[in-house]
Each structure stands twice: as C-alpha cells, then as structure tokens.
Write a protein that binds this DNA or RNA. Sequence first.
DNA 1: TACCTTATTCGTCTTTTACGAACGCTAATT
DNA 2: AATTAGCGTTCGTAAAAGACGAATAAGGTA
Lengths: 300, 300
Amino acid sequence: MKFDLIDLRLFIAVAEQNNLTKGAELVFLAPSSASHRIKQLEAHLETQLLVREPRGVTLTKAGDIVLRHAKKALATLEQMQSELYPFTDSMQTHVKLWANTNAIHTYLPDDLGQFLELHPHVKLILEEHGSDEIADAVAKGEIEIGIVAEQELNSEVMLFPYKHDRLVLIVPSRHKLAGAESIKFDQLVDFPFVILNEGSAIHTFTMNKAAMLNKHLNIRAQVKSFDAVCRMVSSNVGVAIVPHDSVCHQHELALSIIEIDETWSKRDLMICVNKHKELGSLVTELLRYLTKQKVRPGTL
Amino acid sequence: MKFDLIDLRLFIAVAEQNNLTKGAELVFLAPSSASHRIKQLEAHLETQLLVREPRGVTLTKAGDIVLRHAKKALATLEQMQSELYPFTDSMQTHVKLWANTNAIHTYLPDDLGQFLELHPHVKLILEEHGSDEIADAVAKGEIEIGIVAEQELNSEVMLFPYKHDRLVLIVPSRHKLAGAESIKFDQLVDFPFVILNEGSAIHTFTMNKAAMLNKHLNIRAQVKSFDAVCRMVSSNVGVAIVPHDSVCHQHELALSIIEIDETWSKRDLMICVNKHKELGSLVTELLRYLTKQKVRPGTL
DNA sequence: TACCTTATTCGTCTTTTACGAACGCTAATT
DNA sequence: AATTAGCGTTCGTAAAAGACGAATAAGGTA
C-alpha cells in the first residue's frame, strides 16, 4: 500500500467532478500533479480507475470500488478526529465568528445553541457584519470563521456550503398572483398574510421588512408550523412567506410558489475560513458541525 | 489531515508493541524516523498519543481512539485492495510456491484447494524443497512465495506466521508414559495406536515415519475425527499422535500430553516473501488468504 | 557505579512531490 | 474545413519531505 491520503482525497474529488482538473483544484493541486498522482495510484493498485475521455473522466468498475472504500476510510479518520477533540492539547476556548444578518437571525441561533450545548467550555464571540467585511477579516486572520451570503468574495478564503435556501411566496393555486415568476415585496404587503407564531425568526423578519416600507402587514392567521402555514394558504386564508425547502414537497396542496425579488430572499449561506492557515481543532469541530447541519424544514 | 497511511501503520505497530523501536522495525523505519513521524502525528492531531516511559511507550486515551480508527481505516483499504483484485491489470496467472515437506503434506492441500477454487484462472507451481533453499530462492526472486519451518533464515525475506502447531503424543492418564516430558518416536512404535482414517494426511505421515524405522505400527483403531481419537485414547484403547491444537481443550478427558522429540513434530510454519520486491497482486491475494487461515482443529 | 534499554535530536543526503510550460487529443464552433 | 476551447499528459526543474546514523538524554538494572 504505497498510496496516501492525498491520493484518496484527490480521487474522490476527481470522481465526483468527473473531471481531473476540477478535482485537482478542490484539493489544491495543479492538474499535472493530480494526473501524476492518479497515475501512480493506478499503478500501485495495478488497476485502471478512470477512463479518460475528451470531456473529463469517468469511473471504471474498479474506480467505483475505490471511491466507495476511500470515502469510508476517510470518514473513519474524520470520525477519529472528531472523537479526539475532547483530548486535544491547548484546547482552544473561544472562537470568533462573524455572520451576516440573515444567518444571525435565522439558522445560527439554533445551530450554535446545539453546538454550545455539546461543548460547554467553549465561548463564541459572535458579531454581525457585512459579507465582504467578514471575508476580509477571515482572510486577514482576524477571525477564525465567518458566515456570508455572496459567492464572489475575497479569494483568500475557503468556502463551504452552509445552508442553501431562499424565501418564497406561496399563494393558493387560484390566487390572482398564482403563476407569476417573481414579485417584489412591496407589491404584496396589502394581501392578507398567514404567518408563523409571533416570536419566530421569520415572523419578526417579515414584520420588520414591512415596517421598513411604512406598512403594517395584514395578518389573517398565525399558526405554529410551516405545515399549518401551507394548509392555511391552500385553503385561501391568505399568502405567506416561507423558506422554499419547507414547502417544496407539499405537492398534495393547491399552492403556487413565487420567487421574491429581494436581496434578502436569497439565503445561500456559505461558511468561510482562512485558506492557508491551519485550523484549530475547535474551529475544525465547529466547521464539521455546521456543515453537517442540513436544512430542517419547519425549524428555521 | 496532514498525516499519511505510513503514520497510521507505524502507530498501530508501535501501539501493539508498546515500543517505538520495535514498532518502527515492523514498518521498516529507523527509530529516529519513527520518533519524528509520531511526533508530527501528535502535533497534527494536537493530542498526545503515547506516554514515553523508560521501558517503551503506553497509549493515552486519545491513543486508544486513534488505534481503533486507524485499524478500521486500514482494514477498509485492505478490503478495497481485495475487492479490486479481479480487476487488476496484467492479471498474473501463475505463482511459484515452494514449501517444505510438512506444509505440503499437511495444511497446504486444503488451503490451496480452497484458494484455487476461489480463483479459477490461477495456476500454482508447487514444489517441495528444504526450508533454507526456499528462503534463498525467495530472496533471489526465483520464486514469489515460500513456506518454511525455521525462524532463522536468510534475512532478506519477510516472514509471516502461517500455522503454529506441533504434533504431540496423547496417552491415557494412567498410561505408563503419562507425565513424561517428551519422547522419541522410536520409543513408542510398539504401543498400540489410535489413528485417523486411512488416507488422512497425518495417518500417511505417521505410517511413513514408522516405515523409515522399519517398523509396522500396531494399529488398534482407526476413527474419523480427532475428537474420536481423543476419546478412544482416554478409554485406554491406545496412544495417538495428533496436532496439539486439536487436543488442548479436551480437558474433560483423561489424557496426558507428551512432546514428541523429533524435528518433524515442530510445525511452526512461516510464509516468506521477498523483502524488497513489490508483490504482485496475485501473490498479495494468496498471502492475504493464507495468513487469514487459522488452525482449524480437526481438519489437518 | 557502570551498563542497558529506549526515545530523541541533529546534520546530511536522498527521494518525493509540486509546479508551469509545452504538447496532444477530441468535440464543438465558425 | 479550419479554429477554438477544454482536458489530460509529459517533462525539466526547484523545493520540500523524509530517512538515516551518530550522538545524546533519561530512566531502570546488575
């Protein structure tokens, strides 16, 4: 066994991209190096793993086997690091995390709350900043980790997907807005609204947006779950603003989904960390934790 | 994750030996290199894995975790190679295997038979030679793999345990030989014998040894299993020669076990392969297979 | 006290590995 | 039909990693 973990990570990346160059980039290698490494790997295993095609690569059967086991092996080692965390020397006790408004008002409270519960000794220093500012601070090493919205940022940071979601308007199928592609928020403040319980993040958020337009939302119903929101809307009680992911699989309901054409409706959040600096174990742990969190419809 | 597979193998070896120097040797590293590697590993994991004591090392709790996961990860990769075997390029079709008399007449037929069944395209070229001769041929690369008896051989070969067993004499507890430390074969050819079915390897072997002394064994009973042999002997039917491992756990029977003081009674068999040459996948597979075989009492 | 075992440090040398530039190949484009 | 764009590979060079042996340190043992 003469290959190493970089080979495995590279191979996984290449396999998932079906593209050697892109895969190489994901593990910070030049294409030439990647090509060389994979050739060595194939030589050591005495097996062809990829078929090189003019537009990328595809896996052979042997490649599938390697992909599967490589993933498993790396997962084992990730798990190891995770379990190792409590024993880590020089245990870091605080992390500076900056996040944009969206993140701080939506997903973060829940996620961080859970994380802090799991790690009682940890202190988070959480601040709200603009995405560009956050990325710069991460690049300069002023903070360890940030959560931002934009994709195009300071190229000195490494990005991981955090949440991928957007707020949409749902209306009954026969509503006069039904079928519209997208809509501005100010076009709908006068419609009757179905919203979540007072105090929920999205409730507050929506009310604030309306207030900024000097409007007062016409609240027809307040309910306790996204499920209930959808049902109310489909029963013609009113319209509602909800995360797209919490509605997409309610196909049995007579709903029409409309994009909201506002910057705040986009909620693709990315985690960014310094590209070059070695991450402390606590940051690694936090990053691991946050990237594991999936969108949980109905929680927001 | 900046460590590599060598680190993991090294760590496992060191952990199992509780000794850095010996562990290093197992993975063909100088102690200095091993020390350096493990220090790096500890640095990368930000965790102390070993406590260095004057007589070797012991594992910390973190070390235990690493040991467990490292083993699992490596096992995954071994499994991968194993599954990969059928896809291997330049699939080797024959292997030269030399073995000493013992091995050829005892364990090998069974094990090789099974192996060949699993690999229908493989041809084995099996020859019988003396252990030293075999080791030299392996060292020179004339044959890929050998099975030998002695431990002290040409140091250019790498050894793996194959079978660890020895033939012993069993007699009834009240037999006049009972309690003896050891005995020569010629001292017992006149006792009545219980032996395995005609045709079994050990039967043929024993008969041949007697014939070499110009004696004819006094066969009192032939039975079909080692279990039966033990029962017959404990019932005073006669004495018997059996593999030690097939008798050791028959404590309820009134048996006395006596060493046989002959070279052929030692059946510690080792597999040897070339220390420096990269092993072909077929040889790897065979080696993997043979080292997995455990002594199966009652099979011989 | 002298000695042994075992791990570590240091300086040197070899091997490994990454990179960029040039190249070859194929499919899509003009 | 010629051109362009996307990909993977090859090659030479430069830098980094890694292995080794000798010397060292630290703690038990005879």
